[in-house]
Amino acid sequence: KRYRAVYDYSAADEDEVSFQDGDTIVNVQQIDDGWMYGTVERTGDTGMLPANYVEAI
């Protein structure tokens, strides 16, 4: 699945990823209600991200 960031996010922990509004997130997997795991296409960084900061595309 592919998602697009709708807000900027700065990683708060080493297992999270930072991204900017408009970034595409690929290979996304749902972890639980609030978190997903995926790769930021622009940077190649992979990690956890907050589900409410992205939307499906």
Rank of each mutant, 00 (worst) to 15 (best):
Q20G: 06
I25G: 01
Y37D: 03
N52L: 11
T24N: 08
L49I: 14
D45T: 08
Q20A: 08
T39V: 06
V17F: 05
I57E: 09
R4I: 11
G38F: 04
A12L: 13
Y53M: 12
Y37I: 11
G38Y: 02
E55G: 05
G47V: 01
V40L: 03
S10V: 14
T24H: 10
Y7A: 15
E41H: 07
R4D: 05
D32L: 11
M48D: 02
G44H: 05
G44W: 06
M48E: 04
M36V: 10
E16M: 08
V40A: 02
W35Q: 04
I25V: 07
T39M: 08
A11C: 06
Q30S: 11
N27V: 14
W35M: 07
D15Q: 13
P50M: 08
A56P: 14
V28R: 02
A5F: 03
Y53F: 11
Q20K: 14
M48G: 03
P50F: 05
D21E: 15
Q20W: 10
V26L: 10
I57M: 10
S18P: 02
Y7K: 15
W35V: 06
V6I: 15
D45F: 09
G38V: 03
G22A: 04
G38H: 00
G38L: 03
Q30A: 11
D15P: 06
Y9K: 03
G34A: 14
N52C: 14
A56T: 08
G47C: 02
Y53K: 08
D15E: 11
R42D: 03
Y7N: 13
R42E: 05
I25A: 00
V6E: 05
D23W: 07
D23V: 03
W35Y: 07
A11Y: 03
L49A: 04
M36Y: 13
D21S: 15
G38R: 00
Y7E: 10
P50V: 04
Y3W: 09
W35N: 04
I25D: 00
E14G: 10
V6M: 13
T46Y: 08
P50I: 05
R42M: 04
D23M: 01
I57A: 07
T43V: 02
R2A: 12
W35D: 00
Y37T: 07
D33F: 09
A51F: 08
G38K: 01
V6F: 08
K1Y: 11
M36T: 03
E41N: 04
K1M: 12
R2V: 14
R42W: 04
D8M: 08
G22D: 04
T46F: 07
L49P: 00
Y53G: 08
S18N: 06
Q20L: 14
Q20C: 13
E41T: 07
I31T: 06
Y7F: 12
T46V: 10
T46Q: 09
K1T: 14
Q30M: 13
M48Q: 06
T46W: 07
Y37N: 05
V26Q: 06
Y53W: 07
D45C: 14
A5V: 05
A5C: 08
M36S: 04
V54E: 00
T46P: 03
Y3H: 03
T46N: 06
F19V: 04
W35I: 06
G22N: 06
Q30E: 12
Q30W: 15
Q29A: 09
V40D: 00
D8G: 11
T43D: 03
S10D: 13
L49K: 01
S10K: 14
I25K: 00
V17A: 05
N52F: 11
Q30Y: 14
D45W: 07
D32F: 13
D23I: 02
D23F: 02
I31G: 08
E41I: 08
R4K: 11
D13E: 12
D13Q: 13
I31H: 07
D13V: 10
G34T: 14
F19Y: 00
G38C: 03
M48L: 14
Y9L: 03
D45Q: 14
A56C: 10
V28A: 10
D13N: 15
G22V: 02
Y7C: 15
Q29M: 13
R42C: 04
Q29K: 14
G22L: 03
T39Q: 08
T43P: 03
K1V: 14
E16L: 05
A5W: 03
R2T: 14
D32I: 12
T24V: 15
D8A: 14
V40K: 00
D8K: 09
G38D: 00
E16H: 12
V54Q: 00
V40W: 02
D45N: 09
S18C: 05
Y53R: 10
V28Y: 04
A51T: 10
D45S: 10
Y53P: 00
M48F: 14
A56R: 10
K1Q: 13
R42P: 03
Q29H: 14
G34P: 03
R42V: 04
D23N: 03
D8V: 06
G44Q: 07
G47K: 00
F19R: 00
G34V: 14
T24F: 14
